[in-house]
Simulated assay, not measured.
Amino acid sequence: MDKFTVLTGVAAPLRVVNVDTDMIIPKQYLKTIKRTGLGTGLFADKRYHEDGSEDPNFVLNQPAYRKAQILVAGDNFGCGSSREHAPWALLDFGIRCVISTSFADIFYNNCFKNGILPIVVSPEDLEKLFDDAERGANATLTIDLPNQEIRGPDGGMIKFDIDAFRKHCLINGLDDIGLTLEKASAIDSFEQKLSERAWV
């Protein structure tokens, strides 16, 4: 998993509440267990017309937001079914951070396991971030995880809370496998002692 320390990038505004995982990645894209290639299916029902052409009105199809790395979204983001393909699709598109006033629990947990930082802010702070994001590619946000700050293009700053263990994992690029591998020497030692005792 890639480390997350400081990210400066374009933020796309998605003024939609209750964005569920089916909207994030529709069911027809769930046939794969690969984490790559899902970016094309991200918000597919919103991004594309029935004939497959892009809908120019959807935010991620607009020139200013095609390379967005941050998503500023409405309340209750990631609700619905617990598909891990949702954070996979966001990450494959290039989104490393999602900011909202609340997240569905399973989606929230899945983000951390896949290197995406979900940030919870107040409704007032979210509105400020929407204003920043709606300026387009000329106004970027900086997400500073070590200092737990969101810095806007005009020098404004918003602090955010995060669980210390999850922060540690993101900064060090540790998913569940990485956490286990940190204990590799202790595991090897235990297995060695166990194998020796088995023949006594």
Rank of each mutant, 00 (worst) to 15 (best):
171 I>W: 13
113 K>M: 12
124 E>C: 02
57 N>K: 15
74 G>H: 10
162 I>D: 09
102 S>Y: 12
59 V>P: 02
183 K>M: 11
154 D>G: 07
73 A>P: 02
104 A>M: 11
115 G>E: 13
61 N>P: 04
54 E>S: 09
90 L>K: 03
65 Y>R: 02
120 V>L: 08
66 R>I: 11
120 V>R: 14
101 T>R: 06
103 F>C: 07
101 T>P: 06
140 T>M: 12
148 Q>M: 09
151 R>E: 03
116 I>V: 15
136 G>M: 07
53 S>I: 12
178 G>K: 03
139 A>H: 14
137 A>H: 12
142 T>M: 04
102 S>K: 13
53 S>G: 08
117 L>M: 14
180 T>W: 03
126 L>G: 01
171 I>Q: 15
143 I>A: 06
70 I>F: 05
184 A>P: 00
158 I>S: 02
181 L>G: 07
143 I>M: 09
80 G>W: 06
135 R>V: 07
138 N>F: 09
152 G>F: 01
137 A>Y: 11
80 G>Q: 06
140 T>K: 15
137 A>C: 08
97 C>L: 05
176 D>S: 13
124 E>W: 02
182 E>D: 14
184 A>T: 13
84 E>K: 00
90 L>P: 00
70 I>R: 01
101 T>A: 06
164 A>W: 00
133 A>E: 00
74 G>K: 06
131 D>C: 06
142 T>D: 03
118 P>D: 10
52 G>V: 10
185 S>A: 12
142 T>S: 02
119 I>R: 01
137 A>G: 10
118 P>Y: 04
85 H>F: 05
163 D>I: 05
120 V>C: 07
98 V>E: 07
146 P>Q: 14
54 E>T: 15
102 S>F: 10
155 G>W: 11
179 L>A: 10
172 N>S: 03
115 G>I: 15
150 I>G: 00
91 L>E: 04
159 K>P: 00
173 G>W: 05
184 A>H: 13
136 G>S: 07
79 C>Y: 12
144 D>Q: 02
150 I>W: 00
84 E>A: 01
107 F>D: 01
172 N>L: 03
141 L>G: 01
132 D>K: 11
128 K>R: 13
119 I>H: 01
144 D>R: 04
93 F>K: 15
155 G>V: 12
137 A>F: 08
176 D>M: 10
125 D>H: 13
134 E>N: 10
121 V>Q: 01
169 C>W: 00
87 P>F: 09
139 A>N: 08
162 I>N: 09
125 D>W: 05
157 M>C: 14
159 K>M: 07
137 A>E: 15
140 T>Q: 14
112 F>K: 04
126 L>R: 15
109 N>G: 13
61 N>W: 06
162 I>L: 14
102 S>M: 10
153 P>S: 15
169 C>E: 01
153 P>C: 10
94 G>R: 10
92 D>P: 04
161 D>N: 14
109 N>C: 09
60 L>C: 05
75 D>P: 02
102 S>H: 12
173 G>V: 08
52 G>T: 12
119 I>Y: 02
102 S>G: 08
160 F>K: 02
